[in-house]
Write a protein that binds this DNA or RNA. Structure first.
Lengths: 239, 239
DNA sequence: GCAGCGGGGTGATGATCGTCACGATCACCG
DNA sequence: CGGTGATCGTGACGATCATCACCCCGCTGC
């Protein structure tokens, strides 16, 4: 079946084959049926802005496939990437529940499928369905948990190399692939974006990566990055 | 009525006079009745450890009165104060819901009253009571929101003075008292603790505060701190 | 071809801030 | 009243990193 952006699309949550793996979506047939009646499926190309920091909450997005970059910016124009959201995450839930402005901006960095639920519908869904409410609470707990990790990393790291090492280790755990040369990571972000993830500058990232290469901690081949000396990297992080 | 630690204690949520002001506790009589049956009221002196980072979740604490310091530490012993919790907040909810280790440590910094709910009881309370679940979701949203603010501040601030200025402005908004000399803040933390709140060292805090004084931005009299030049402080922060 | 652009590499320089070191105060207590 | 510990003040020094500046490379469009 031809579909836009080379994306395999599932318009119907009840028939979604990956539902069981998704923390939020893994709910009873009945609840998912209700979900199907209020959601709007959308396909977004890379670079779509789902919502912007400061905007009044219109509702929530459930990320079905693809990846979404969550960012926040200072008045000076400096940008921090708070998180790269993965499939299964619910975006904008806290702002929607509190009816306060979105606290981050969300932008797709790959072609993505998202299900949108309008604020009113979402609130009714939560109030009327204990299971949905519970799963939302879980989802929010997850988000708080990961925010907490971010705070630790930003606040307790002494040096920038520590933060970079930590980021690489995080990546190797999440999306790493074991090879004979160590874990391979696909680096899909530019140095600029990596810098925005750890709160530093593009130049510093470039320099640190060269430094890591020189010290044989990592190896870079195109967009592949190999973790050669994992223990050494682990020694650098104290958080 | 005499009570320990000079604390006015309310053993019964149903009769609590400040309940309506508390985001979480402001629930129907019925729900609060249920809450009363599962909670254990505790009084804690200053310095009590409620739970420790990494520990398996025993349950949640509802802060009735007093204040609680939430911290996280690096393996090197450096400590970051994530948040000072105020009455009405629920502590340990995300860890309890996910059944993952507490992500922060909680320590009272004043004599405090807290209601404890065991994990099993709390989960049953949520599943069986839509209102409680909804209020918990709200509470978690609040926590996520404030964590997000913290991330912004830590990740986007260029200089330490910016973070300190921001902290003072935050305080003046939350607990400030208008006087002819500008807003008065009661500083109840040591320089060491302030340093831990903004991720720097004690010496730097001391120096920055002296600097702010020299530049007539603030004035210090004992534990009172006056914000003399609020606009100047606001100009320093870009987050 | 070549201009334009996004991305990466690198050097020079200076400000910031962590670290170490030492003193000064003040409260509390035997 | 001297001792002890917590807190604050301050100087000296050096490492780290942001900033600016420039260059290189590969790609795209004309």
């Amino acid at each position: 079946m031809p579909s836009p952006y080379n994306l395999e699309v599932e318009y119907n949550c009840s028939e979604c084959r990956v539902r069981a793996e998704r923390l939020f979506c893994n709910m009873s047939e009945e609840t998912v049926g209700t979900l199907d009646t209020v959601k709007f499926t959308g396909l977004y190309p890379k670079g779509s802005l789902l919502f912007v920091e400061g905007e009044e909450p219109r509702g929530v997005f459930i990320l079905c496939s693809g990846r979404v970059k969550l960012t926040t910016s200072s008045t000076e124009g400096k940008t921090l990437i708070v998180k790269i959201a993965e499939p299964g995450e619910v975006l904008g839930a806290s702002a929607t529940i509190l009816n306060k402005p979105y606290e981050v901006s969300a932008e797709t960095i790959e072609p993505s499928q998202l299900n949108f639920i309008k604020r009113d519908d979402f609130m009714k869904f939560l109030v009327g369905n204990a299971e949905a409410c519970m799963h939302t609470a879980q989802q929010l707990s997850e988000k708080y948990h990961s925010a907490q990790r971010e705070i630790r990393s930003l606040g307790l790291s002494q040096t920038t190399s520590e933060k970079l090492a930590r980021l690489l280790l995080d990546w190797s755990e999440k999306g790493g692939e074991q090879t004979t040369k160590g874990v391979r990571i696909k680096v899909l972000l530019t140095h600029e974006e990596i810098a925005q993830m750890i709160g530093t500058t593009r130049e510093t990232v470039t320099r640190l990566l060269s430094d890591f290469r020189r010290r044989k901690l990592i190896e870079v081949k195109g967009s592949s990055l190999f973790i050669i000396a994992k223990p050494a990297l682990e020694n650098m992080v104290s958080v």
